[in-house]
């Protein structure tokens, strides 16, 4: 399809830093190629702002191919914009029409404080991972031969699907409760499905859930919004599996 050029109006959240108040600012941007990605459109706006000697908009991004999980943005009321199964970096301007007004806001969550403009701090996710998102095996390289422990293909595939989470935080951003259950559920599930993870399963789920609660995320009420907005299609099944693991661990743990 031939690229078109569209003119748009943007309403973008600007906030100097974590300690100041922010507000939506309005910008017009002309001649945006519909072949551009959403982030390239923001590049174009920033170029325009800098040339006008104004401060460009800060936003997180890195790989721009939908895998690093660094890009975010709440676009027209939806995490990563109107297209499902897509990160903002892979959202293209052909999803928008000439004359559109587009709202761009940062992820809103108490656990993801704003750093600047559209940039938020997602290190809460890292701390949850540090609380138990691993198998305690040291680097020796010869713990056991990789093929000494067959794993049913279905389990391995499910573990992979859970592990495909890119940690972008869209689940938290789109959940009306700001819950991180899909992120944590995916990690817990990956290990719960694999024999390597079984040994520490009990402590893992208890520790990760405790850390999740400490970070100030909300509670899961099973609205399913996270699953719909997840750019990697992580299934709600993972939350259920975590609930199971949590109940099991809670009932049997002596701690």
């Amino acid at each position: 399809m031939a690229a078109k050029s569209i003119n748009i109006t943007l309403k973008i959240w600007r906030q100097k830093n974590a300690n100041t108040k922010g507000a939506l600012e309005t910008y017009s941007l002309n001649e945006v190629s519909t072949d551009s990605s959403f982030l390239e459109m923001l590049d174009q706006l920033n170029e325009q702002l800098i040339n006008e000697r104004k401060e460009p908009i800060a936003f997180d991004h890195d790989c721009r191919e939908g895998i690093c999980g660094m890009c975010s943005l709440y676009i027209n009321g939806r995490a990563h914009g109107p297209e499902t199964g897509t990160t903002t970096c892979q959202l293209h301007m052909r999803m928008f029409s000439d004359g559109d007004t587009i709202y761009v806001e940062p992820w809103r969550s108490r656990a993801f404080p704003i750093v600047k403009d559209l940039v938020v701090d997602r290190s809460a996710f890292d701390r949850i991972q540090q609380a138990g998102g691993f198998v305690s095996v040291n680097t020796s390289g010869n713990t056991m031969d990789a093929n000494s422990l067959p794993i049913p293909k279905d389990d391995a595939d499910k573990a992979f699907e859970a592990a495909a989470c890119i940690g972008c935080g869209a689940c938290v951003a789109s959940c009306k409760n700001g819950s991180a259950m899909l992120f944590v559920g995916a990690k817990v599930s990956q290990y719960a499905l694999l024999p390597q993870g079984k040994v520490e399963a009990r402590d893992r789920v208890l520790n990760m859930v405790r850390q999740m609660d400490e970070e100030g995320f909300g509670n899961c009420t099973n609205t399913g919004a996270c699953e719909v907005e997840c750019p990697k299609g992580i299934s709600l099944e993972n939350i259920a599996r975590m609930n199971r693991e949590f109940l099991k661990a809670g009932l049997s743990s002596e701690k």
Binding site: V135, T139, G141, M144, A146, P150, A159, Q196
Partner: peptide
């Protein structure tokens, strides 16, 4: 020489490599 150890190490860490129906890598 160490390439094989990498696979052993990653599997021990719970990296979900693709598997065949027999459960092997």
């Amino acid at each position: 020489e160490v390439s094989g150890n990498i696979i052993d190490q990653c599997v021990a860490q719970g990296v979900p490599f693709a598997r065949e129906y027999g459960g092997l890598l």
